[in-house]
């Protein structure tokens, strides 16, 4: 990781110096290694650039605003982030000509909340050694298997290939895509009541902070219906059990077919709600009904919900009784 970070920094420095780009978007250091933030850089602050096991944040959405500005910007994208990038291109949200994409190697990112849930409290700093994560904490040094504390999105990684880039840093480790639908299948196998209870339990924790929406690259509406006071559904609190679900159902439908399963919504939710399961249910259904489709894999293929073929299933063919 140290090595990749060094290469990335050198690359940024080179492209800034040569004038190929005038800004860089990456991640900036924090105090405890887990608290690095997205940030833009010029030569003046590049010394604060980091690339570590905690750089889970997807930078693509920031490009909506950044690519409107003067000059070209360098962006570092992890393999999963490149899908969001393509999707934003397809939706004409970002200006490709103003962006220089450097695909950056990724071997899985760590979830600080999982570390805490593992009983590792008071984390002051972490480093990866092989498959292990070594944590310096107020209560002494602790070691965990990295795989036990990785972000959900990394445990179900789509593979280490970058689907778009101008240049690559590090290796594209060949890896079989991991199973993403195991938990969805388990939910499908539940009875309606069990499934309702599962979601009631999860969604009743929601505090309507909107972090899931605001971080989502597919949620790029300039003015969201949930912020529109005239819509009668704009709300800053879930006033009843129905409203708890309404927001999530509407959001899930609105990103259906455009959600790349980038995993940001689940990463940012302060209440640890497994939002990816809702989106993956849609993805799984679309795959089954209309054939395999991965949003963001390229910039041309039409999404199944945006196109029609004579082979498409008709509404009456959907078996709704069993909730499938």
């Amino acid at each position: 990781m140290q090595e990749i970070m060094k290469q990335a920094k050198l690359k940024a420095e080179e492209l800034l110096t040569k004038g190929v780009v005038n800004r860089v978007i990456g991640w900036t250091e924090g105090d405890f290694s887990y608290d690095c933030s997205p940030a833009t850089f010029t030569l003046d602050n590049l010394d604060k650039f980091v690339y570590t096991e905690f750089c889970g944040a997807n930078l693509s959405k920031y490009l909506i605003e950044e690519s409107k500005k003067e000059g070209k910007i360098l962006v570092f994208l992890k393999p999963c982030d490149t899908y969001s990038f393509n999707q934003l291109i397809q939706e004409h949200r970002i200006k490709r000509e103003n962006i220089y994409v450097v695909g950056i190697e990724c071997r899985g990112k760590v979830d600080i909340d999982k570390l805490r849930a593992f009983g590792i409290d008071g984390v002051l700093g972490c480093k990866t050694e092989g498959d292990k994560l070594i944590c310096d904490t107020i209560y002494g040094e602790k070691t965990v298997d990295k795989v036990d504390v990785m972000l959900e999105k990394c445990l179900s990684c789509k593979g280490k290939k970058h689907v778009v880039y101008d240049e690559l840093i590090g290796e594209e480790v060949v890896e079989e895509p991991k199973d993403r639908f195991g938990m969805v299948a388990q939910l499908e196998a539940m009875t309606e009541d069990e499934r309702y209870k599962f979601w009631q339990n999860e969604l009743s924790k929601c505090i309507r902070c909107n972090a899931c929406r605001n971080v989502c690259p597919a949620c790029s509406c300039v003015h969201c219906v949930f912020d529109n006071p005239d819509s009668n559904i704009a709300s800053k609190a879930n006033t009843d059990r129905f409203e708890e679900k309404l927001y999530h159902i509407i959001r899930a439908w609105h990103v259906a077919g455009r959600c790349t399963d980038c995993g940001e919504c689940s990463r940012v939710c302060p209440q640890g709600i497994p939002l990816h399961l809702i989106n993956r249910k849609f993805i799984k259904d679309m795959n089954e009904f209309y054939g395999e489709y991965q949003a963001g894999e390229d910039t041309e293929t039409k999404a199944p919900l945006n196109s029609y073929t004579f082979g498409d299933r008709e509404p009456h063919e959907f078996d709704t009784k069993e909730g499938k």
Binding site: P38, A39, I207, C209, N210, A211, N214, V215, K236, P270
Partner: peptide, 15 residues
Amino acid sequence: ALSEACLGCGTCTFV
């Protein structure tokens, strides 16, 4: 620079 990455969500205020 401090606010650059802010999503404008309600997490910090609601917790």
